[in-house]
Design a protein around this nucleic acid. Structure first.
Lengths: 155, 155
DNA sequence: AAGTCGGTGGGGAAAAGTGGGGAGAAATCC
DNA sequence: GGATTTCTCCCCACTTTTCCCCACCGACTT
């Protein structure tokens, strides 16, 4: 896992609180758009995230994910369950002329997104959250930032 | 088993709740149709799925399955039982001019499909579920998505 | 002060989903 | 064996959704 296309692209950074219009469209911040590889063809594969949010993988990054998913066995119950649960939510979305994407309705329902969306840069992907949901997520965190760093990054 | 046609095709994605008309026809979502290889010739081999659903394999993918099944020993009791149970349900269906297929009655009976069908992209195949059956399947899952991912994809 | 870039909103053309009718083939019944 | 019925497949028509294009507004830059 982990694994950004070697060297090439810079990680997605930043946050933005944008509006979702009546057609389910959200603008992608310009600096995040500019961080896309040309091979991504202005396209993301969007799917259900971990925790209650939506993941956006640039097309080139997503093809790596598919290689990993494709290596799973059809005959293993848990692998089957995982494949179903990641692929059923997945969809390809392409930026329109205004730099927006249309979020599939199943995903906005899942993530509880209505008229406002919080867009986060998360290294190899973008995340889209309902603002209130994200704040709640932060508040529920049992571990503070400094401690997390120690545990995850090691000493 | 793993093994998508190397490089070539993208996995099937997405979900759709479509109606089954009085003639037993179901539309296949356009994005899934477009993910078909030309060698699939707009044809699926449909068979009994794992869990209570119907599997649709594109013709080209199915020929790989047949190679795997063909490699099983006739002299092994369990292999024999498995071969019978997968092949007895199998049938070929082709898209009509409107992008629909007609589901064989034995399979709709098996999966409990009546007037509504849930169509899922599941990487190398499509799955068709009765909506209520699928919801029940999800509710019965002992493991949540995040945990599944950890177990299946590793840390 | 004008121009450019970034985010927001809406309308119209094209595609996708749904339903029904009719020709041909297969199965059935006399 | 022939006629009738049933089933399947193909085609046509309608409705809804999606996608693409155009226009606006504000902020920052030159």
């Amino acid at each position: 896992m982990g694994g950004v296309p070697p060297g090439s692209m810079a990680g997605f950074k930043g946050q933005a609180a944008y509006s979702v219009d009546s057609k389910g469209r959200v603008a992608i911040p310009a600096k995040m758009r500019n961080a896309l590889n040309p091979e991504a063809k202005n396209t993301f594969t969007v799917t259900r995230g971990f925790e209650k949010c939506v993941f956006l993988y640039p097309l080139d990054r997503w093809s790596q994910m598919e290689r990993e998913i494709g290596a799973l066995s059809t005959y293993d119950r848990e692998a089957r369950a995982f494949t179903r649960r990641i692929m059923m939510w997945a969809d390809e979305v392409t930026l329109d002329g205004q730099g927006r994407i249309t979020l599939p309705k199943p995903l906005t329902d899942f993530a509880g997104i209505t008229d406002k969306a919080l867009i986060l840069g998360a290294f190899d992907r973008l995340e889209i959250w309902d603002p209130a949901t994200f704040e709640q997520y932060l508040n529920e965190q049992p571990t503070d930032y400094e401690t997390l760093a120690e545990r995850v990054m090691g000493v």
